[in-house]
Write a protein that binds this DNA or RNA. Structure first.
Lengths: 199, 199
DNA sequence: TGTACATCAGTGAACGCGCGTTCACTGATGTAC
DNA sequence: TGTACATCAGTGAACGCGCGTTCACTGATGTAC
């Protein structure tokens, strides 16, 4: 049974990621404490550092997981038969509901300090790329004459716009409102996105 | 000269606010340290607490100032004769340029912890109200049949959308791009905001 | 199968650092007479 | 104007706390023979 130790290592890793996720979901990134994690999974503080380089590695692991779930939620929100504008709205609503259901995990996605040396990790770019591809397709249908660069910018613009509406909508500060209102705001903007208008 | 002491108090307050602003502009909210401030204005650490309850009060003061400047920049960006869509774009660009010129002060605006008891301070609501009024007017021209509630939501939606585009655009993470590209993204979205479209 | 040894997971007290805030003290400023 | 006193701005060393991370030690697991 050469694997008994290795198995335990893996189990500890998973347990720690689970615990970190729960911790972040409950109190946000800043609520993640080594001592709490150790208590929650029933190991010593030192054991964490046998399995992770530091807490930050743990946070990245949680964020990777969150991003995958978010991508899955968005992908599952449409079936591809909808007209493009409707599809954009469906995806945006999926984004909104995910963010509303897991506000702190979602926030953590944008608050994690990315490693400063070898830039943004691979899983991040992959997940982001997948998300953007989902948005780009209907925009391509909507604007068949747009060239690739413009479409790329438009994709980022649409994502950012929806993100902004969800972000400020979920905060109490600027315009904290019920999710239903946020849904309306998204629809207000997206359902008015048409061909370019003069003036 | 009953005022000599009082004058010094005021001068110290102002110097501290100036120093805090410089500190935040240079390194973000988290770079604000009591020791640095004291060194910068040439007073002792304790003197800060003679004039402010705590560092947080100082941060609020800086944020109030930033918000005023931001509002002034947006207000100055149009003269009211432009067609509404063009005016929205002018204001958005002013917002973008302010954020790009003072990214950390601007970020601090959204990151300051608001007092938990008596909610958001008065200056914040006033500044925000003024900003929203600027946006609401052209939207009202654009959608004369919209009722007040819908116009309110639309105002928040437009602000949030532009905010999102600027926010993610200025970050290196999701879609860090030169300001010129961000300008294009804003225009792409805003110049397509028209009447509601079927489907 | 049994024994001796090596490895490394596991432990948690202790280290180290950053940093906001306090507090006992001092001396300049202002007031009373 | 001069003197005695009170106030309070100003000082900076020290407190206190949180918290990530280390490290010397232990004991279970796996390996060699």
């Amino acid at each position: 049974m050469a694997g008994k130790v290795a198995e335990r290592r893996v189990a500890l890793r998973v347990a720690l990621i689970d615990a970190a996720e729960a911790e972040i979901e409950a109190g946000g990134l800043s609520a993640l404490k080594a001592r709490d994690l150790a208590k929650q999974v029933g190991c010593s503080i030192g054991a964490i550092y046998n399995v992770f380089d530091d807490l930050h590695g743990l946070v990245l692991e949680v964020s990777g997981r969150t991003f995958k779930k978010l991508g899955a939620a968005v992908s599952a929100s449409y079936d591809g038969t909808e007209p493009p504008r409707a599809r954009l709205i469906l995806m945006s609503n999926a984004y909104l509901y995910f963010a509303a259901a897991h506000p702190r995990l979602w926030r953590a996605l944008f608050d994690v300090q990315m490693p400063t040396d070898g830039p943004v990790p691979e899983w991040y770019l992959t997940s982001l790329g997948r998300l953007f591809a989902n948005i780009r397709a209907p925009l391509g249908e909507l604007y068949p004459d747009m060239d690739d660069d413009a479409l790329g910018l438009m994709t980022r613009a649409m994502f950012s716009a929806v993100h902004g509406i969800v972000l400020l909508g979920l905060e109490n500060r600027v315009s904290g409102v019920p999710a239903e209102h946020i849904r309306v705001m998204i629809a207000q903007v997206l359902s008015r996105i048409g061909p370019e208008l003069p003036e």
